[in-house]
Amino acid sequence: MTSAPGYNFAYLDEQTKRMIRRAILKAVAIPGYQVPFGSREMPLPYGWGTGGIQVTAAVIGPEDRLKVIDQGADDTTNAVSIRRFFARTAGVATTERTAAATVIQTRHRIPETPLSEGQILVYQVPIPEPLRWLEPRETETRKMHALADYGAMHVKLYEDIARFGRIATTYDYPVLVNGRYLMRPSPIPKFDNPKMNMNPALQLFGAGREKRIYAVPPYTPVKSLDFEDHPFEIQSWDQACALCGGTDSFLDEVVTDDRGGRIYVCSDTHHCATRRDAVQEAAE
């Protein structure tokens, strides 16, 4: 184990880690409930994953293998920066293979490869409060959560259908966790929402600037809000991935020229690479 000189393992001091772990335990005990925690100033800017980093730092050990993705990709600048942060301060092994990782920190996506028991998925959360658009006041939203006073949330969905004929929320789509707490799934596309439901992995959410931690324990029901006659549905594409030919993953649009040319590729880079390898192997 090699960590940066002058700093503790995984940057945070042990006292701080214990404080964060206590918050995590509470979050696990009350699925979907936002636990306030003494978020520390981190050497990365607020809004760039400080909550996720603190959660990861509190749960990671020397034996862990860390994967970091941003927009589903391992090679985006922010993912590289955070992976490098932990490689430097904790000296842990890193990987791009979803199945091989014990801790996965993510921004905006859930990996396409199904997660398994024992894995921890850490989300970076910019704004944890699902009721914030409706009510800017923390004192009031906490009361609404305490009373499960969530009816107004459906007003937004009603408005969507009235105006567009369908629910027009495409990401950060609100969910009800364990039939009790309304939760904001960090801005993942709603395509990923069903993956949260009854997932064998532990899902932890960290919001550094807003100083909140929340969790979805393994095998917890997570339901996306909807109406009986307008059920929740996920995005689908007419195209296949231009690289691996997959049709069941979330696709990014890549503009290839300024005349409307575009291709679609998997947002999850590791998933795409794995499938390409499999296709190649089959051909050989």
């Binding site: 006073d149 007003v155 009603y158 109406f227």
Partner: peptide, 26 residues
């Protein structure tokens, strides 16, 4: 709620007490 439609204004109380059928609320 001045920012949402007349229909949603009337429907809000129904949704608050558990109505989940868009067509009926409307």
């Amino acid at each position: 709620r001045m920012g949402v439609s007349a229909g949603a204004n009337v429907g809000e109380r129904l949704m608050a007490v558990g109505a989940r059928h868009y067509g009926e609320i409307r």
